[in-house]
Structure formats: C-alpha cells, structure tokens
Amino acid sequence: LNQAYLFNPRNAYQNYSAATNTTKTTKRTYMGTLLPCMGNVTYTTSGEMSPLLKDPKLRTIGIGTRILLCGGEGFVVFEGTQAVNKAETLENGDKYYAGYTLAVIGDMKGMKSEYIRAATFDGYGVSLFVGIGIPIPVIDEDMMADIAVPNERLYTYVYDYGYSERSRKALARVSYAQLRSGEVEIDGKKIRTAPLSSVYKARKIADELKNKILNGEFLMTNPAAPLPPREKLEVLNTERNK
C-alpha cells in the first residue's frame, strides 16, 4: 500500500465515568458485563496515567501536537467527539474534570499490533483498544503541579448503567486510588472493581515515548493552535415538537 493511516475521532478520554448496575438483571454494555444489584464496578480511565488529566487545562496539548499513536507517529488534529473540559471544584479544593477527548491521525505502517487491538464485549458489540502516548513538557510550576496530582486526588463518578443514558444517576464519587485498590464502597456496600484499560500498557507506552525522546527519535512539537473549549455536551433531541 502507498498509504495506510488511522483517523480516530474520539481518543484518550480524559475522565470517563465508572459504571455499575442497581437492577436485578445482568446488563451487557460498552462498559463490560455489569452484574445485578451492584455486583461490580468497571472503569476505563487510567487515572494518573491519563494524558489529559496530566494537562487538564490543555496548555501543551493542541492541534498539531505530535503523539505516539499505537507505537507509531501520530498527531492531534482537533477536539474529539463528546469533548467537554469543564472543571468542577470539589469541597476539598481538588478539581474534577469532566472529559475532554482528542481526534487523532497516524501512519498505520509504523504502528505496532501490541498497541492496537480488536475488542469484543459479550452481548453488546465490538470496539477497538488504541494505545496513545502524549509528551507533556514541564513549562512552569503550575504545569508541574498538575502533572504531580496522584490517583488519590483524581476522581470520577460511578453511574447506574442499569437504566437508559438520559436517566442515569450518579451514585458516588470515587478516587482512582479507590478504584485501583479493587474495591469501592457505595451506600455501605463494598463492591469489586475492574479496569477496562491496562495501566501496564499505559506505563509501557509512556516508557517507550520517553526513550524515543531521549534518543532523539521523537521530536516534540508546539501546538499550531489551541483546542477549542467545550463547556457542555449538546444532546440530540429526537422528539418532535408538539
């Protein structure tokens, strides 16, 4: 092939919600199989390994940023679908970031199958596991403070996926340290947790990117333009006007 490239309009979800199921029936979802009566909690974001949680204000990540996409060279081309970067200040002073996303493109000829894999969710459908590494330069003390925030101070909400998307309720706010411990507590019940993303792979991608930079094989770039801010997510209303 002369050209083979991957364009993916939604990647590196900054901070996706965790999922559980309060109903009495098993639910097959894109968050995996959710057991009845809050039998488990699944989550996808890798916490302190999530690039957009390390640069939550998008100060160094923008249009034109060079990235490591599936082990090969790629670039951020625009905001991703469902991107929202509104921040909420919590009662303890920490920040909760909703969930920005990135649209990216890369040369498939340089990619590694280890970092791009087909995924199937039993009873739901298919998806794709995509590994992304984004270099974040420490440009000042404020950037260092954001980069240094640990899992204990990074949070997401657990939503009830037993019901349709528009009527889902947030059941609890938990830290990624709690999720990574293998157990969270909701309404006095201890619930097992399971990740859908691999922290092992995330660390491996980060190490590979670091070595490429140190060896002069990967040149960091300044963004050509900032990514657009997005305060809220517009929801498609399919109901006809009466």
Score class of each variant (00 low, 15 high):
188 G>A: 03
201 K>L: 11
197 S>K: 13
174 V>N: 04
188 G>T: 02
180 R>I: 09
186 I>V: 11
184 V>E: 01
171 L>G: 01
182 G>C: 12
189 K>E: 00
196 L>V: 10
176 Y>G: 01
193 T>K: 07
176 Y>N: 04
193 T>H: 08
174 V>M: 05
187 D>R: 10
172 A>T: 01
197 S>W: 11
184 V>M: 06
179 L>P: 07
173 R>Y: 12
178 Q>C: 03
188 G>I: 07
178 Q>S: 05
184 V>P: 05
189 K>Q: 04
193 T>Q: 05
182 G>S: 08
200 Y>T: 12
169 K>W: 15
200 Y>W: 08
195 P>E: 04
197 S>R: 12
182 G>M: 12
169 K>P: 14
177 A>T: 14
171 L>R: 07
174 V>I: 15
192 R>W: 13
180 R>M: 11
199 V>E: 06
201 K>A: 07
195 P>Q: 00
169 K>D: 09
198 S>K: 09
194 A>H: 11
180 R>Q: 14
176 Y>V: 09
174 V>S: 01
181 S>H: 15
186 I>K: 00
191 I>A: 03
177 A>Y: 14
186 I>R: 06
174 V>W: 04
190 K>S: 02
173 R>S: 07
197 S>G: 10
177 A>I: 11
189 K>L: 00
202 A>R: 05
202 A>F: 04
197 S>D: 09
184 V>Q: 03
194 A>I: 08
187 D>P: 09
171 L>M: 11
198 S>E: 02
175 S>V: 14
178 Q>I: 00
187 D>Y: 12
202 A>S: 08
169 K>F: 15
172 A>Y: 00
198 S>C: 11
197 S>H: 14
193 T>S: 07
199 V>Q: 09
196 L>Q: 10
201 K>D: 12
198 S>T: 10
174 V>L: 07
188 G>N: 04
201 K>T: 12
176 Y>R: 06
198 S>R: 06
198 S>M: 10
191 I>P: 00
173 R>C: 09
174 V>A: 02
187 D>E: 12
179 L>H: 05
193 T>I: 14
188 G>E: 00
189 K>T: 02
192 R>G: 07
191 I>N: 01
196 L>H: 10
191 I>T: 06
198 S>F: 09
200 Y>M: 08
197 S>I: 14
199 V>R: 09
185 E>N: 07
195 P>K: 03
176 Y>L: 08
199 V>P: 09
173 R>P: 10
200 Y>H: 09
178 Q>N: 05
195 P>V: 05
183 E>T: 15
180 R>N: 13
170 A>F: 10
179 L>Y: 08
169 K>V: 15
177 A>N: 09
171 L>V: 13
178 Q>Y: 06
193 T>M: 10
172 A>W: 02
192 R>E: 13
199 V>K: 06
189 K>N: 03
188 G>K: 06
176 Y>A: 00
191 I>W: 05
187 D>H: 11
172 A>C: 01
175 S>G: 08
175 S>C: 11
172 A>L: 01
188 G>S: 01
184 V>F: 08
185 E>V: 15
184 V>L: 08
189 K>A: 01
190 K>V: 00
202 A>Y: 02
181 S>V: 15
184 V>Y: 01
186 I>M: 04
172 A>N: 04
177 A>C: 14
180 R>T: 13
192 R>A: 15
181 S>N: 15
195 P>M: 02
168 R>A: 02
198 S>A: 06
184 V>S: 04
187 D>G: 06
196 L>P: 10
